[in-house]
């Protein structure tokens, strides 16, 4: 099964799926950061203009510092997110899922130079397109990966019904699908929900169930599965 995740195995032997982010959201995040950076650049030019020649020298120094420190500071102290990344809901972590460290962030951002090669980030783009975890060269060197920030662990509301256990023991996947059907009751058409519930074997329901009441029973199961 093809999926857009990268699997991390923990020491206890369980697998954590990290949802890795690819070229499109990352490039967009980069452009947003660039925009912010350009705004800073203009402000600096403006200030430097007042200071004359000395200002010009100062400008280049500050420009240099901001240019290199901007992503590093944000990534290390803001949970792996520059403002651009934050607006796209992505962040940098180590490939084992731990927060990015100062040294890794430093390496991946300095190596932006390598990704720029030969011109206009061609190496970076191609690397992100062809690497399995959408890493650019800097990511490979630093052992980092860009992932989607996890959704909040919130529960979608489900239609309330008196909790009831299904007549047949369900596997984990089946339990989640029943729960998910209830959670998506506002996104799916009534007809489609009816149709989906009609797919299920009748052993699941209390005997002699009319088709239209199946959905209601499924909602009862969902309430039961969610744990009263």
């Amino acid at each position: 099964m093809l999926d857009n995740t990268s699997k991390v195995e923990t020491p206890e032997g369980i697998e954590l799926p990290l949802e890795v982010a690819g070229l499109v959201p990352r490039t967009m995040a980069y452009f947003i950061d660039l925009l912010i950076f350009l705004a800073l650049y203009y402000i600096l030019i403006l200030i430097a203009g007042f200071l004359g020649n000395f200002g010009e020298g100062l400008f280049y120094i500050i420009f240099f510092i901001i240019y290199w420190l901007y992503p590093i500071i944000f990534e290390v102290f803001r949970n792996g997110q520059t403002p651009g990344k934050k607006s796209l809901g992505i962040k940098v972590v180590h490939h084992d899922g731990t927060p990015v460290s100062l040294s890794s962030s430093f390496v991946r951002n300095i190596l932006l130079i390598a990704d720029f090669l030969p011109f206009f980030y061609t190496a970076g783009f191609l690397s992100m397109l062809f690497n399995k975890d959408f890493k650019r060269l800097g990511d490979m060197a630093a052992g980092t990966v860009v992932i989607y920030t996890e959704k909040e662990n919130k529960e979608d509301p489900i239609p309330t019904a008196k909790p009831r256990a299904p007549a047949v023991a369900l596997t984990l996947d089946e339990q989640r699908s029943v729960l998910s059907l209830a959670e998506r009751h506002q996104q799916l058409s009534e007809a489609r929900q009816q149709e989906l519930s009609s797919l299920l074997p009748e052993q699941l329901f209390s005997s002699k169930t009319e088709n239209h009441s199946r959905l209601k029973q499924l909602h009862a199961f969902a309430n039961w599965l969610r744990g009263h």
Binding site: N4, V20, A21, G22
Partner: peptide, 14 residues
């Protein structure tokens, strides 16, 4: 989400 779907596409293309 929309971007993750595009990323899955990248894997399909790979």
């Amino acid at each position: 989400n929309g971007y993750a779907a595009i990323d899955l596409g990248t894997r399909m293309a790979q």
